[in-house]
Nucleic acid binder design. Structure first.
Lengths: 202, 202
DNA sequence: GTCTATAAGGTGATAGAC
DNA sequence: GTCTATCACCTTATAGAC
């Protein structure tokens, strides 16, 4: 961390602060402290809290959303293996950034501005994924399902239990962290089987 | 709204403000304005922003979490009908309060305090649900599955697509609200069938 | 590029009249 | 119970020395 240039130190510190506390809860002083520099330097590099936030928000989006396409167009040839691979990798990625989904959702819901454009600007093309699913249906390998619903189901089951970890932990395990981690580890396999069981045609 | 007493007017206004902007983003002035009263009155009734927030947070929790148990112990006798009933009702409830899941999760993640106790204090007893699931497994009507995983899958697929609506809307429908609402309406039936297809033993 | 000092405005909270 | 006026503090942002 110490051998980073100042700009990168700021970005790292801001990432931690914004993602933990959200835009309105984040403090420029806290970011400066975490980066080990002076508050005035933040404005020298990024001009305002808002500008700095935008940089971090884009970073957060890029950490989770495009990965989604990247993993789905994986080397696996079998459709069910693709699902297995996706679920395992995506849960792993989200577990490394557990606060990012909640951060993105909260900012999109509370911020009246044009943050949503950050997502549109990704120009995510789902056509190959839709096509892949439709092919499986047409060739009688999986039951008919609207592609959007299949994707949503997979993503929901992968993200939500991690995003909502404090609640899950409290309700299922009285706050026990170890039991929670075991559950998520298990889900890397079981969620995929749950999905495959649902759509497979015997 | 005008014929409510002052305290209720404040609670309603605070609910809207806190759930939309979160604790740190909410403004006491905005709450007073929405309630049509003076800022000083907020402190007369609730002493501080923090106290008022606690009231709202507890309200938000009660709107979503216990409902979960209430619906599951529904009058339906058939297990699959229970699932159908739960998914339909829960998606409907969440759609009426679409910002609450994100609000709860954000506050639990960013607030270092003891908000989590609000959930523990509910003393949610899942044993009847676990037992119900285990019975279905023992009697060979559904495939073996860890009850926690089944519950998590159902809840994830019911909540996440609503909680993350701005992203879903943007990615799937270029922001089109009507198409999004149709999708969610459809999911009230389809999510249940997706689950039942996965666990049913033919 | 990096710092200290300070400006400028906002925010929760209270005092005190009615 | 409800209001106006005001305090005390915090936060972003900038000026200016080095």
């Amino acid at each position: 961390m110490e051998d980073l240039n100042t700009e990168d130190k700021i970005v790292n510190a801001a990432e931690a602060e914004f993602i933990e506390r959200g835009y309105s809860g984040a403090r420029m002083q806290a970011i400066a402290d975490k980066a080990g520099i002076n508050k005035a330097l933040l404005h020298y590099y990024f001009r305002s809290k808002e500008k700095l936030f935008e940089v971090i928000f884009k970073l957060a989006i890029k950490m989770l959303i495009p990965k989604f396409i990247g993993i789905i167009t994986s080397p696996e040839t079998d459709f069910f293996d693709k699902i297995r691979y996706f679920v395992k990798e995506y849960i792993t990625v989200v577990m490394k950034n557990p606060h990012i989904p909640g951060f993105i959702i909260h900012e999109l819901n509370s911020n009246n501005s044009s943050l949503i454009n950050v997502i549109s600007d990704l120009n995510l093309n789902l056509s190959p994924v839709y096509k892949m699913i439709q092919e499986e249906i047409d060739e009688g390998r999986i039951k008919p399902i609207r592609p959007e619903n299949l994707i949503l189901n997979i993503v929901s089951m992968s993200i939500f239990p991690i995003e909502a970890s404090p609640i899950i932990k409290a309700i299922f395990f009285k706050g026990n962290q170890k039991q929670y981690l075991e559950l998520i580890e298990q889900r890397k396999e079981e969620v995929a089987e749950f999905i495959i069981n649902s759509i497979r045609i015997k």
